[in-house]
Amino acid sequence: MNEQHPARFVNPDKLAPTFGYTHVVETTSRRTVYVSGQVAFGEQGQLIGDGDLAAQTRQVFENIAAALEAVGMAFRDVVKLTFFMTDISGMPVVREIRDQFIDTTQPPASSAVEVRRLIREELMIEIEAIAAGS
């Protein structure tokens, strides 16, 4: 852990190589923030990107950024992301957009799960986040 980030990012040699995530993130932060699963709804509750995974993903990340900003945090503080997708084969699209928001040199721990459906039929992705800071 260092002064710039209250977390230590570790990829143990005995685990498989990673691609855009970290196996273990250790934090001793006094403050942890949990962001509920975000979907592709704009400020007025309207769906953004009907049928467009890239547009929905970008909106989800923008929603997470707004949630973090509301409590004085940013994506640099995110230590865990969980992705829920209706079609996991779209993960390369999601990763490309994710990498525009996260610190790719110290990516957060991550899980991705394919689900049959989200809260509304037209939603393709939901992402929840955990952030740690002082």
Rank of each mutant, 00 (worst) to 15 (best):
D87K: 13
T104E: 09
Q59T: 06
I88L: 13
R98N: 06
F75K: 07
R76F: 05
L68K: 08
Q106C: 10
E62D: 11
E69Q: 10
R95Y: 11
R95I: 03
E69R: 15
A66E: 14
L81N: 03
R58S: 13
V79W: 04
Q100K: 08
V94C: 12
V94D: 01
T86I: 14
V60F: 01
V71Q: 12
M73N: 09
T57Q: 06
E96I: 01
V79R: 05
Q100I: 02
L68S: 12
T104L: 10
I97Y: 06
Q106A: 11
T105R: 15
A67H: 08
G72K: 06
I97D: 03
M91E: 15
F75C: 08
R98I: 00
I102K: 06
K80D: 07
L68W: 12
R76Y: 08
F84C: 05
T105M: 07
S89L: 05
E62Y: 06
A65W: 03
N63P: 07
V78E: 10
N63F: 02
V78T: 12
I64Q: 09
I102R: 04
A65G: 08
I102D: 04
V60T: 03
A55Y: 11
K80T: 03
D87L: 05
I102C: 06
R95N: 07
M91G: 00
E96H: 14
Q106E: 13
V71W: 05
L68N: 12
T105Q: 10
V79P: 02
V79N: 05
V79A: 11
T105F: 10
K80V: 02
L68C: 10
V71G: 05
V60L: 03
M91R: 06
R98T: 01
R76T: 15
P92A: 09
T82M: 12
E62T: 12
A70V: 06
K80S: 10
Q56A: 07
I88D: 01
N63R: 08
M73P: 02
L81V: 05
D87A: 15
P92G: 08
M73C: 15
Q106Y: 08
M73A: 14
M91L: 14
R58C: 03
I97N: 04
M85F: 03
D99S: 06
V94A: 03
G90Q: 09
F83R: 00
E96P: 01
M73I: 09
E96D: 09
F83T: 01
A67F: 04
T82R: 09
P92Y: 10
V93S: 04
P92E: 13
F61G: 03
P92N: 12
F84A: 10
A70N: 09
M73E: 12
V94L: 05
D103K: 09
T86V: 10
D99P: 09
V60E: 01
I64W: 06
Q100V: 02
Q56G: 08
F75R: 05
T86C: 04
F61P: 02
A74Q: 13
A67T: 13
L68I: 10
G90W: 00
V78N: 07
D87E: 13
I102Q: 14
T86Q: 04
T105I: 08
D87P: 03
M91A: 06
G90L: 00
M73F: 10
I97A: 04
M91S: 15
T104Y: 11
V94Q: 01
P92W: 11
T57R: 02
S89Q: 13
E62W: 02
A67E: 15
F84K: 08
F83E: 02
D77P: 02
D87C: 05
Q100N: 10
T82L: 14
I97V: 11
